[in-house]
Every structure is written in structure tokens, then in C-alpha cells.
């Protein structure tokens, strides 16, 4: 008897598998929650600070929840960032490259997945190379080239390489499309061919629609990576035009001038509000398209065999 009850307790606590027992479950939830909190803690802190007014900022008893919602910080950073104009430019150098890069990399991936090409291994090697060689190595000649073409300090300097599949992480997207197109059943293409469709028709009528998840995922990742990129964009479009991220980069220096503790606290709050304003657009996209980001890696079969 005793033995059985002991086993029962053990079963409830530990379960047949780690994840089934009470102990294991609690531990997993606790860990996930704690680490999850560590992840979003900076965001919560930033947000809480950004809506504090001067009184709350200097009041040590007000930590997390401000006594009232104060939006003046946002107004200030909105003006300093010239938000409307900058957002528009940010979107220009983010959306357009992302769309074009997605199209080109899908064409490349399709060709590699569906056709017998001599030297395919070499092409794959070169694609991998574009991923492994850091942009820094070829950015100086690109800079000179763009200067000659007269497209420095314009959105074209970002758009051109993306259009030709040489943008940010293009190689990853080619591989995503390659995997995805390769998984499509050949029978579909063959039956379309028998019905008299040519290769381009097969691509547009069968390949593209069936690959919609890959397109969405690639576009979203491309969008986010371009949005967050500052190294290359500050070099190519830096001195007169600004993306939101580049503005933030300079924001700190603009607001560190005033001294005094109170002023410093206000500056911090303004900086926080500026940071929130800058992550807001991608955050909104993420909240709406969350499923595509998180499940996209699965669906596109990038992990493939």
C-alpha cells in the first residue's frame, strides 16, 4: 500500500515525463515568466519613464506607475525627430528595399530549386559567400561606385543593392525560397506544362501563390532588418537625410548638453520617449503579423533536410 501511494505522489509531482509532473510544469512556467520578464523589463521601464512629468521623475516614491499620464516628453521628441518627415523617409528606405529584395531573392531561389543548372554548386558557394563576407569589406568600393553614379545620399544607395539581391542578408532569403520551392510537388508543374503553360506562367500561377508564406516571412524579416540597420545607411545616406534610427543615434548628443540632475532626468525621459516612438512602427507591424514572424521559420522549411 505504502509503496503505491508513494509512487502516486511521485507521479503527480514528476509525471511520466518532465513536462507532465507538477514540479516540472511549475518550474517551466516560473522560468519562462522570469526570463520573459527580464526581456520586457527594459521596455516597461522605458515606457513608465517616458510618461512621467518632472514631479514624478524627481520623486523617488514614484517608481513604476506615474501619478498622471504626461505626454509632453513625446511632443518634444516628436518635434526633435521631425517624426512625420523622418518616418516617411525611413519607410522609403525600408519598404522599397524589402519588397524588391523579396522579389529578386524569390526568383533566384526558384531558379535554383526548379531547374538543372550547370555550376549550381558554385552559385550556392557564391551565395554563401555573400553572407559570410561582411559588408564592411566591399562597402568602400560601393561607396565610390555610388558616388560616381551620383546616388549617394539618396534612397537609391540602399534600394539598388537590394533590387539586385545584394542587400541585407539576401543570402538567407534565397535559401528560404530555395527550400520552399523545392518542397512544392513537381507533379503540379508537370500537369501545368501538359496544359500548355510555359515556365514563366508556371512560376506566376503555381509557384508564387503556393509560396505565399515564404513571401510574407521573407518580406517581414527583410523589413525589420532594414528598419534596424544603421551602419550602412549612415554611410550611404548619412549627412542630410535621416532615418528614425539615425536620428536616435544623434539624439543622445543633442540632449546631453544641459546639466543638472533635474534637467538630466527630463532628458532621460525625453530620450526614452524618442526610443519608444522609433520602435513603435515595427512594434505595430509585429503585433499584427506576429504569427508570421514566429511560425514563419517553421513554415518556410529553412530548417529543412
Amino acid at each position: 500500500m505504502k509503496k503505491i501511494s508513494k509512487q502516486k505522489i511521485k507521479h503527480i509531482l514528476l509525471g511520466k515525463n518532465i513536462n507532465e509532473g507538477l514540479l516540472g510544469r511549475t518550474a517551466i512556467y516560473a522560468l519562462l515568466l522570469i526570463i520573459g520578464f527580464v526581456y520586457i523589463y527594459p521596455m516597461i521601464k522605458m515606457f513608465a519613464y517616458s510618461i512621467k512629468d518632472l514631479e514624478d521623475l524627481v520623486n523617488p516614491t514614484v517608481q513604476w506607475i506615474p501619478t498622471k499620464i504626461y505626454l509632453e516628453n513625446y511632443r518634444t521628441s516628436w518635434i526633435v525627430l521631425s517624426y512625420g518627415k523622418t518616418l516617411l523617409f525611413s519607410l522609403t528606405v525600408t519598404l522599397i528595399p524589402a519588397i524588391l529584395q523579396t522579389i529578386t531573392t524569390s526568383l533566384t531561389g526558384y531558379a535554383l530549386a526548379k531547374f538543372k543548372i550547370r555550376g549550381k554548386a558554385i552559385i550556392f558557394g557564391l551565395i554563401l559567400m555573400t553572407y559570410l563576407v561582411p559588408q564592411q569589406v566591399y562597402m568602400i568600393p560601393r561607396f565610390v561606385l555610388f558616388d560616381k553614379l551620383g546616388i549617394l545620399e539618396s534612397a537609391w544607395a540602399i534600394i539598388f543593392p537590394a533590387t539586385f539581391g545584394q542587400g541585407l542578408s539576401s543570402a538567407i532569403f534565397i535559401l528560404i525560397f530555395y527550400q520552399f520551392f523545392r518542397m512544392q510537388p513537381k507533379a503540379l508543374d508537370e500537369s501545368a506544362e501538359i496544359d500548355g503553360a510555359n515556365n514563366y506562367q508556371i512560376f506566376f500561377r503555381i509557384g508564387v501563390p503556393l509560396a505565399a508564406p515564404a513571401y510574407i516571412t521573407a518580406f517581414l524579416f527583410s523589413f525589420v532588418w532594414y528598419w534596424n540597420e544603421t551602419y550602412i545607411s549612415s554611410l550611404f545616406i548619412g549627412s542630410d537625410l535621416y532615418t528614425l534610427q539615425l536620428k536616435l543615434l544623434n539624439f543622445a548628443s543633442q540632449f546631453s548638453l544641459a546639466d543638472g540632475l533635474t534637467q538630466q532626468a527630463v532628458n532621460e525621459a525625453i530620450k526614452y520617449s524618442a526610443t519608444i516612438l522609433i520602435i513603435l512602427p515595427v512594434l505595430i507591424v509585429y503585433i499584427i503579423m506576429q504569427k508570421w514572424f514566429v511560425e514563419g521559420v517553421d513554415r518556410t522549411g529553412i530548417t529543412g533536410e
Partner: peptide, 10 residues
């Protein structure tokens, strides 16, 4: 979430 918002300046 960090993948979405983790840019250099942020």
C-alpha cells in the same frame, strides 16, 4: 520581440 526592436541605437 528583441529581433524586432534590437537596432544599434536602441
Amino acid at each position: 520581440l528583441p529581433v524586432i526592436i534590437a537596432s544599434g541605437p536602441v
